[in-house]
Design a binder for these strands. Structure first.
Length: 105
DNA sequence: CGAATGACCAAGC
DNA sequence: GGCTTGGCCATTC
C-alpha cells in the first residue's frame, strides 16, 4: 500500500469534514472524492463511526439527502444537531441538498 | 491472505 | 416513495 493510505486514510476524511461550514451538509461520496478516493464512500462512513470530537460528523449525510444512521446508532442526535444549525429536514426525513449542500468541492 | 463488515451509491422495478 | 441488486473500498478478524 501507499504511504499516504498507510498514514491514515481517516485523517484525510476528518480534515475535509472539519472544513464544512456551520449550517451546511455534505455527502459521503462527496467526501470520498474530496480526498481523491471516489468510490470509497463506504469507508468514509467507517471513518465517521470512530470520528474524533472536533469533527462535525453530523453534517455528513448520504447522497439522497437523508440521515444514514439508524435510530439506535445516533439518528436522533444527528437530526437534533442539524436542526440546531438551521438545517431543515422535511417530513420524509430528507434534507434539501441544493439549499444546504456544501458546494466547496 | 481470504472472508466478512459497514453511517455508501447508482440503476431498475 | 420504497425495495432489490451489483459494485466500491479500507478496515478487521
Amino acid at each position: 500500500m501507499k504511504p499516504e493510505t498507510q498514514k491514515t486514510f481517516f485523517s484525510r476524511v476528518y480534515t475535509i469534514v472539519r472544513k464544512i461550514p456551520r449550517g451546511k451538509v455534505a455527502t459521503y461520496g462527496q467526501i470520498a472524492r474530496a480526498i481523491g478516493a471516489p468510490g470509497a464512500a463506504r469507508t468514509v462512513g467507517w471513518a465517521m463511526r470512530v470520528c474524533p470530537e472536533q469533527v462535525p460528523w453530523h453534517r455528513i449525510i448520504n447522497a439522497r439527502g437523508e440521515i444514514s444512521l439508524r435510530p439506535a446508532t445516533g439518528y436522533h442526535e444527528q437530526r437534533a444537531r442539524l436542526k440546531a444549525e438551521g438545517v431543515h429536514i422535511n417530513r420524509a426525513g430528507k434534507i434539501d441538498l441544493k439549499k444546504y449542500g456544501w458546494k466547496q468541492i
